[in-house]
Nucleic acid binder design. Structure first.
Length: 1213
RNA sequence: GGGCGUGUAGCUCAGUUGGUUAGAGCGCGUCGCUGAUAACGACGAGGUCCCAGAUUCGAGUUCUGGCACGCCCA
């Protein structure tokens, strides 16, 4: 369709004050007819006949469409690859990608992490570093198995085995890529530049072998060992459940709560009162725990005469339960109980083991079992203050056993007593109840205890207890499983040391959450009894039980008598599609056996476990390269990382796994090993001190992502209605309340990222993430919030460009007159244009915006180098505000000036052009799409001379010589004066259209007066006044008050500050000021002696006196002369009239060049004379051919102040 | 129960080493501009800086103790 340019040419005969007519402008105007695409298909109007260097863009661009064009452009010209190639020999900035798992849909949280992961590498690349960005995928683990299980409709391990491990893991392998397409789309659309083609994948053979190498390294150093881990166990299903699964299955049940008597061996009349809610664990009792610093009481049971020991604080409550008196006969400390032996509640282990003793490491002997131990976790919140410990069935209990074991010499340590089998039933160890399911044994057990006189009290107890999420009726039990551990506790101090050197954002992570986590480090439980994971590379001699670790498939194949590889070969032959990577996975790897080096004739077979997939991710710094088996150069160069970022939930995940593995393998930690083990030959030895931190130097820890939505009150029984924007909620029926909280798939309380991209674009989302809050705060992902960043930033910037191009088109500004430009159009090279004058020769406002630009550059670089995107963005926003709301606004007249060849006009263009170019480079890492669009627009006149993309440019460098701090300060003052003036007008109800004769500006000192005076045209125009006076002598208008400069005087005067303040406040401010101005100081008589204060010690404040139309700021008071003379009033009336006529023009749909006729019907003499007096101005401004007092036929009539207005288009023109 | 974090305007958030008028954006109100125009600008109202104590001449900021919310771990 054809239509007129919306960015219309100026009306040719419209004179403008104060410099009169601009008829000559007419000749320069091209009335171009433009062709527009239907809306949203493009951001541009295509000029049919324009030969100008710049074209005016559409007023209101559709950013998503522009972004798609930029994406296509990046692809077409391989911009990302070029950006890397340009830095081929540059120093590195190393980025590690924390691998996401592609078998789940990407969600908004990933947009944030990926945006942050993008902005710093882009920034650093522009700053001259080579930043490779290797993508990665986390592919192993239970979530994958669960996903596949769902698909197959199977749950338990038995079902998986029945289905077949081989087809199962094949399905896992392909399932991993299920949402690949979505991930790729999101990554691309967001503008996250990352090398997806060469991504590392945790199931790939090279990756697995790197992990194997590291595990062998640890194994050989004695750091990998087998032990027990107490897990939540589903006895019926024969499997352990992850924390997440357990969390799903809690519900409230009643369990028995029993108080049992443990008679002391040395004082049989005295019994410990021990409390438990799981009677079935009592046969496996090993210890009773007390808190050493707690007070315990020995009480006499009035009924039985027995002496009972329990926490003093709980005597009363127990007496209440027993409904009888307990007389305290002695109080003792918990400490004194420690070591006391008792008779366990059931005799089976006791009689079979014969109450053994063991030799202590510290010398001497002690009973292995059934004695009181000290434990800090004992409380008096409930129970008796004495806790029954059955380490087989509780994690805390088990830790006590581990500690106990360290007290005894090797070979004489207490064993784990466990009378329950993996099926949840009692074993031979507790023969009397063999085969009974433990949860059904409680009744029988308590009866037995009652019969033996050991049961003091029984009651029911309501609490939350976990059940299997797959089988509701099956309660879980805590149960010990054999497991492989990494001795990370040995590296605790080194990990802390390493951690202390990491640049955490926010800092509190170091000593807070992460530091605390390291402090309480426990050995890493590495193994998983599952199927789809990195197989634990340990082979066991079937005869001797001795083991060795393998670091690669090749090493395995080279073993003597190797057998079993045909299982893989057959599978591959049967199905050539199978990825070779599967051969290092279950079940194929399990079938590979070889001759034992430990005993002739024996065979070596792999242990059955796979490993925790967190280990996979933590091995990424070297495993992504397949190191050490290959790519040594890449690894050495790309280690450690300069920057990583993930959300806070990775504290115990990727942050820890990386730090732990790196600390153990590299640097100082590499030499640590158990006595009698092999040295670590493979790991590169790095200098211990200088190499911390590794494997990452800086880490931004992102906050949680929340959503905000509108929810209907929802009547009972009805589903809640969820709406995502305020507008929708306003329109909908019923009452909606605003909610902020976690994103929930079932509630659908957030928009999918693709919707956001389509509606507002990736830049809007990115800028919102970067510029609205420090990244570690929780970030609200809401439609409205993201949309807001468009007018706040993107559109503002666009409008500034739009302004520039409109004028550039009209004036034919052509930057290619700079013939010696470099490819980045750097400021220095623009100077080759004949019309480009040195900045120092340009007007104040040009120098000012340059100064602001370079101040901003310094800030942005400073902040970004500190990984502080938030404040960097704040600085950019400020600059844009200055550019758009001051520079452009105040320079309009210069762009509009009739002489298109005047140096001042050239200055204006070159200044705006240069600032736009530099600003475009600055925003490139943050909003890469808009930046590239602008870059291409701004550089279009240069064609191939300029770089194709802004992302190939260098980040601008601040030039200190262009920063004029004084000018920046003065301009701030000037803007404040203008603002004060407007405020005073508003207060006095004197609208800006009414000219005033004068304003007086009273300042505290005269330092800025000269400068201000030379710029008073600016103020005059802003405030529509005829004159501005500057003075420090406020006279009648102002009350001066003097306050101490606290920061300076505080340390000097100390306690006397209030006195000084009071004296200064009570003295006559005007007089003090005079004294200060004449003598250079003021003197106060303090009680402690005289005190001389100079100008620096005190601060002069101004207070406008009552009765003046005045407004005050921090350093100035602006007073209006409110006298309105008849002349001024008439000028005001004329301006009002112009405003009225212009509105009517708009009403009439006038083009800017349309001529009109105007008539005013009024009996107001003043208005009539105003019209006569300002006729020329009125007609000029409004393009009126005719202006009469009277009426006009066929014209709209509207009421104006003092009469009626008629406006009609002049036809035929 | 433990650890960590957060609490500042109606909303979303800034606030550097303690310094005396606590800021921004949005929203709201008033006004302006009408040659950046389905834009834009100005001005304004709006605060017990969660509470209580302590340190200090001075606390949104430091310390102690609460309260509320969130996350992680038990």
């Amino acid at each position: 369709m054809l239509r007129r340019v919306p960015t219309r040419p100026r009306s040719p005969e419209k004179p403008r004050q104060p410099d009169g007519g601009r008829g000559n402008v007419l000749q320069r105007i091209k009335l171009c007819v433009v062709l527009t695409f239907p809306s949203h298909s493009s951001g541009y109007h295509v000029s049919a006949n324009s030969t100008a260097a710049f074209r005016a863009p559409a007023a209101s661009p559709h950013f998503p469409t522009l972004e798609e064009q930029v994406l296509a452009f990046w692809d077409q010209h391989s911009i990302y690859e070029q950006s890397l190639a340009r830095r081929a020999n540059a120093p590195t900035f190393v980025f590690y990608e924390g691998p996401p798992t592609a078998n789940g849909m990407p969600h908004p949280g990933h947009c944030l992490t990926r945006a942050i992961k993008d902005v710093f590498p882009r920034y650093k690349t522009m700053r001259g570093y080579r930043c490779e960005r290797k993508a990665g995928w986390d592919t192993h683990g239970l979530p994958v198995e669960v996903e596949v299980g769902k698909e197959l409709g199977i749950h338990s391990k038995e079902e998986i085995e029945a289905y077949g491990v081989e087809p199962f893991i094949q399905k896992c392998q392909s399932s991993v890529w299920r949402y690949m397409q979505e991930w790729q789309t999101l990554t691309r659309r967001l503008g996250f530049w990352v090398n997806l083609e060469e991504a590392y994948v945790t199931y790939h053979q090279s990756y697995v072998e790197s992990v194997w190498w590291s595990l062998k390294n640890l194994f050989d150093r004695g750091l990998l060992y087998q032990g027990h881990k107490i897990v939540w166990w589903w006895a019926q299903g024969g499997t352990a459940l992850s924390a997440g699964e357990v969390g799903q299955g809690y519900r409230e049940v009643a369990d028995p709560s029993v108080y049992v008597l443990f008679p002391l061996v040395d004082q049989p009349e005295r019994s410990l009162v021990v409390w438990t809610t799981t009677p079935w664990t009592l046969p496996s009792n090993m210890y009773a725990a007390v808190k050493p610093d707690l007070e315990y009481a020995v009480v006499k049971d009035s009924e039985t005469g027995q002496e009972l020991v329990l926490a003093a604080a709980l005597v009363e409550s127990l007496a209440g339960k027993l409904k009888r008196e307990l007389t305290v006969i002695e109080t003792i400390s918990g400490e004194s109980l420690v070591g006391q032996r008792y008779q366990p509640p059931f005799d089976d282990y006791h009689s079979r083991l014969n109450d053994p003793t063991g030799e202590l490491v510290a010398g001497g002997e002690e009973s292995l079992y059934w004695r009181v131990v000290a434990a800090d976790f004992v409380t008096t919140d409930s129970g008796s203050g004495l806790v029954h410990l059955a380490p087989a069935f509780g994690e805390i209990d088990y830790e006590v056993l581990v500690t106990e074991r360290t007290r005894f010499v090797d070979g004489q340590r207490p064993e784990l007593l466990c009378a329950v089998g993996p099926n949840g039933k009692f074993t031979d160890e507790f023969a009397s109840m063999k085969g009974v399911w433990v949860k059904e044994a409680d009744k029988t057990l308590t009866r037995t205890l009652r019969e033996s006189g050991r049961l003091l009290h029984l009651e029911q107890y309501l609490h939350d207890y976990p059940f299997c999420w797959r089988a509701d009726d099956d309660p879980l039990i805590q149960y010990p499983r054999e497991s492989w551990f990494i001795r990370t506790t040995k590296f605790r101090d080194l990990m802390l040391k390493n951690n202390s050197k990491i640049g955490w954002q926010p800092e509190h992570i170091r000593d807070g959450r992460f530091g605390n986590f390291l402090e309480s480090n426990v050995d890493w439980a590495l193994s998983r009894e599952r199927y789809w994971g990195t197989p634990l590379p340990i082979w066991v001699c079937q005869s001797t039980g001795r083991m060795e670790a393998i670091e690669s498939y090749e090493e395995l194949l080279a073993k003597p008598g190797v057998d079993g590889t045909q299982v893989w070969d057959n599978a591959k032959a049967a199905n050539p599609e199978l990825p070779d990577d599967l051969r290092v996975h279950k079940p194929y790897i399990d079938s590979v056996t070889y001759d034992s080096p430990f005993e002739s004739g024996a065979r070596m077979q792999r242990v059955s476990e796979v490993i925790d997939c967190w280990y996979d991710s933590g091995a990424m710094p070297f495993a992504q390269w397949g190191w050490p088996h290959q790519n040594d150069a890449q690894f050495q160069e790309q280690f450690p990382a300069d920057f990583i970022s993930e959300a806070i939930d990775q504290t115990r995940g990727w942050f820890y796994s990386q730090l732990a593995i790196s600390t153990m393998l590299f640097g100082e930690g590499a030499s640590i090993r158990e006595a009698g083990t092999k040295a670590n030959e493979l790991a590169p030895s790095r200098d211990s001190e200088s190499d911390y931190p590794h494997p990452f130097r800086n880490c931004i820890v992102l906050g949680l992502m929340l959503s905000q939505w509108y929810e209907s009150a929802g009547k009972e029984g009805q589903a809640k209605t969820v709406l995502l924007s305020e507008a929708e909620a306003d329109q909908a029926e019923g009452k909606f309340t605003k909610k902020t909280g976690k994103m929930s798939k079932s509630l659908r309380n957030y928009r999918s990222p693709s919707e956001i991209f389509d509606k507002y674009g990736a830049d809007a989302m990115r800028w919102y993430f970067f510029a609205n809050q420090a990244p570690w705060n929780s970030i609200i992902y809401a439609d409205q919030a993201i949309r807001d960043s468009i007018p706040e930033f993107l559109l503002r910037l666009w409008n500034t460009y739009s302004f520039f191009s409109i004028y550039a088109e009209i004036d034919g500004f052509d930057p290619t007159s700079a013939t010696d430009v470099d490819e980045q159009l750097s400021p220095a090279s623009l100077a080759s244009a004949p019309t480009y004058r040195p900045i120092s020769e340009r007007s104040e406002i040009d120098r000012w915006i340059h100064s602001e630009l370079h101040r901003t550059l310094a800030t942005v670089i400073n902040r970004m180098d500190a990984f502080d995107n938030y404040n960097a963005c704040q600085a950019i926003t400020n600059l844009l505000d200055g550019l758009s709301n001051w520079y452009v606004r105040r320079s309009r007249d210069r762009f509009w000036a009739p002489d298109s060849d005047s140096p001042d006009k050239h200055d204006a263009y070159w200044t705006l052009y240069e600032v736009m170019l530099e600003l475009t480079k600055v925003i490139a890492p943050f909003v890469p799409f808009l930046a590239d669009t602008l870059w291409q627009e701004l550089t279009a006149p240069f064609g191939d001379k300029a770089l194709k993309s802004v992302h190939l440019c260098d980040f601008p460098k601040p030039d200190a010589t262009r920063v004029d701090q004084k000018l920046s300060d003065s301009m701030r003052l000037l803007r404040e004066i203008a603002s004060m003036g407007r405020s005073a007008r508003a207060d006095a109800k004197l609208k800006v259209r009414l000219p005033l004769s004068k304003v007086e500006v009273i300042l505290t000192d005269d330092s800025a007066i000269d400068w201000l005076q030379s710029h008073d045209a600016l103020v005059r125009e802003e405030l529509n006044v005829k004159a501005v006076d500057y003075t420090t002598d406020g006279g009648d208008y102002v009350q001066y008050t003097i306050v101490p400069n606290f920061k300076r005087l505080g340390p000097k005067v100390g306690k006397n500050i209030p006195v000084v303040k009071k004296m200064l406040g009570e003295a006559d401010g005007n007089q003090l000021l005079t004294q200060l101005q004449t003598a250079g100081f003021v003197e106060l008589e303090l009680p402690s002696g005289p005190l001389k204060l100079d100008g620096e010690d005190i601060e002069v404040r101004l207070q406008a006196r009552e009765g003046w139309a005045a407004a005050q700021g921090s350093g100035c008071v602006v007073v209006l002369n409110t006298e309105v003379t008849p002349e001024l009033r008439r000028e005001g009336l004329a301006k009002d009239l112009i405003r009225g006529i212009q509105s009517q023009r708009k009403e009439l749909d006038c083009q800017y060049t349309d001529r009109i006729q105007v008539a005013i019907e009024t009996s107001d003499a003043e208005l009539q004379s105003a019209i006569e007096e300002h006729r020329t101005m009125i007609c000029g401004e409004t393009l009126a051919d005719e202006l009469v007092i009277g009426t006009l036929a066929n014209a709209q009539q509207v009421a104006i102040e003092g009469g009626e207005l008629y406006v009609a288009k002049v036809s035929g023109k």
